[in-house]
């Protein structure tokens, strides 16, 4: 990563033009060329510094279900349960955290009704009680992550 990459990341976290030549437009603001911008984005994606270049959706507006849920998993069975949970295609990501509730995962389903069904399946398969903590309200945060 060089200073140019940092500038690209900082600038393009804030948005991207929706015009016929958006890379050219964004590149002008950054003081680089269109092909340079495209090439750097390819590099940053390939290196895994960016997970994606595209839209962030509002899941509920798309008609899908989304929630965060937690389990308490006994230490000795943790890896087995992690594998069981991660096998569900609806589990988007999963973190081990330092707490009595030590597994936290995000579930994204095609319909809101599927959330309860999948959580019940996870409960049955793992034998662990699922704590479902869906979003009630989202407070605005600045989306930019300044480097």
């Amino acid at each position: 990563m060089d200073t140019r990459d940092v500038a690209i990341i900082n600038h393009l976290q804030g948005g991207f033009p929706v015009t016929d030549r958006p890379y050219a437009e964004a590149a002008t603001t950054l003081g680089i060329t269109e092909s340079e911008l495209i090439e750097r984005l390819e590099y940053l994606l390939e290196k895994g510094i960016l997970s994606r270049f595209g839209p962030m959706y509002h899941a509920e507006r798309l008609g899908g279900g989304l929630t965060l849920a937690a389990l308490h998993v006994p230490d000795e069975g943790f890896d087995r349960v992690a594998e069981q949970v991660n096998c569900f295609p609806e589990v988007a990501h999963n973190y081990q955290r330092e707490h009595h509730l030590n597994m936290w995962f995000v579930l994204a389903t095609e319909t809101p009704a599927r959330i309860d069904e999948v959580l019940a399946e996870i409960e049955r398969k793992t034998g662990c009680r699922v704590y479902n903590v869906p979003k009630i309200e989202e407070f605005f945060v600045g989306l930019r992550f300044e480097l």
Partner: peptide
């Protein structure tokens, strides 16, 4: 259509999504 989806909030944002860990 993309502008409309941004305006009505279906697309919250268009741009880079960083991996914090890798940064």
């Amino acid at each position: 259509r993309i502008q409309a989806l941004l305006t009505d909030g279906t697309i919250k944002r268009l741009g880079v999504v960083v991996r914090h860990h890798e940064l």
